[in-house]
């Protein structure tokens, strides 16, 4: 689904390649998390994929084709929900559809209504984003991302600003969403437990510049409940990942 081929990138203000000859591959329908310390360049991988940053060299392919020849191949959800305060929740969800164009108002409304039902916000359509709780806002932002109709979703620490209990229920909720439509999800987080609870595979950023991502399979199937986190192999994995990240921190 997503493939990096010898990708190199350098920020103008820096004198080294933060991403250096990086290659990795993500299969269709996978739920993969990228973990790493803050500032390690995780988000740069996303910003290259959604073309907010230009490649220095290499290729990024989505669905087997170079991203530069494609439009709307990925939906991007940043950490902040970025709901426009002057638009109602429904109007916010309509944004990607409006920008794409070529859709009648009735069609757009239908899509928005369906998306709102899917994320359990059918009653919030006419509300202002300010009236929603943090978790509801993230659900609305997720629905807006899904409405880009991309098969690949890039979620950049979407739950990190939420309180602990809301975060847990949002993680369970997200898994339910993913199991329903099996889009490919690439999920950035610095929370090890969140990564292993959600993903089938975890990619670890061990070093900056990023030359490779260490791929680790999560030893649990789907559907999952939080109970799986207390299995011995999951606990071992968690400790191993924490060690990996710590080693980097002290290096």
């Amino acid at each position: 689904m997503l493939e990096f081929r010898h990708v190199t990138f350098q920020y103008e203000v820096e004198d080294f390649n933060i991403i250096d000859d990086l290659s990795f591959h993500i299969a269709p329908g996978e739920f993969v998390s990228i973990i790493g310390a803050s500032g390690c360049g995780k988000s740069t991988i996303f910003r290259l994929t959604n073309q907010l940053l230009p490649l220095k060299s290499g290729e990024i392919l989505v669905g087997g084709k170079d991203i530069h020849s494609q439009k709307r191949y990925c939906g991007y959800m940043p950490q902040k929900d970025l709901l426009f305060p002057w638009r109602t929740v429904g109007e916010n969800l309509r944004l990607p559809l409006e920008i794409r164009g070529g859709m009648s108002k009735a069609e757009m409304e239908e899509r928005v209504d369906a998306a709102l039902r899917q994320v359990g916000l059918a009653d919030a359509k006419g509300k202002s984003p300010a009236e929603l709780s943090g978790g509801m806002r993230q659900r609305a932002a997720f629905a807006r991302t899904v409405l880009t109709d991309s098969e690949l979703l890039l979620l950049d620490e979407p739950f990190s600003a939420l309180d602990f209990l809301t975060r847990i229920s949002m993680q369970e909720w997200l898994l339910g969403q993913w199991e329903a439509d099996r889009k490919t999800i690439l999920f950035i987080t610095h929370d090890v437990e969140e990564a292993i609870f959600l993903s089938g595979r975890v990619l670890v950023v061990e070093e900056t510049p990023i030359r490779r991502l260490t791929s680790i399979q999560v030893p649990a199937g789907y559907p999952r409940t939080r109970a799986c986190l207390s299995q011995p192999d999951m606990i071992a994995l968690r400790e191993m990942l924490i060690d990996l990240l710590r080693k980097r921190g002290t290096a």
Binding site: Q51, R72, P78, K80, L82, I99, T148
Partner: peptide
């Protein structure tokens, strides 16, 4: 906010 501009850019605006 630059993030909002970027969000719209990812929608192809």
């Amino acid at each position: 906010r630059i993030e909002m501009i970027e969000l719209l850019q990812t929608y192809g605006a």
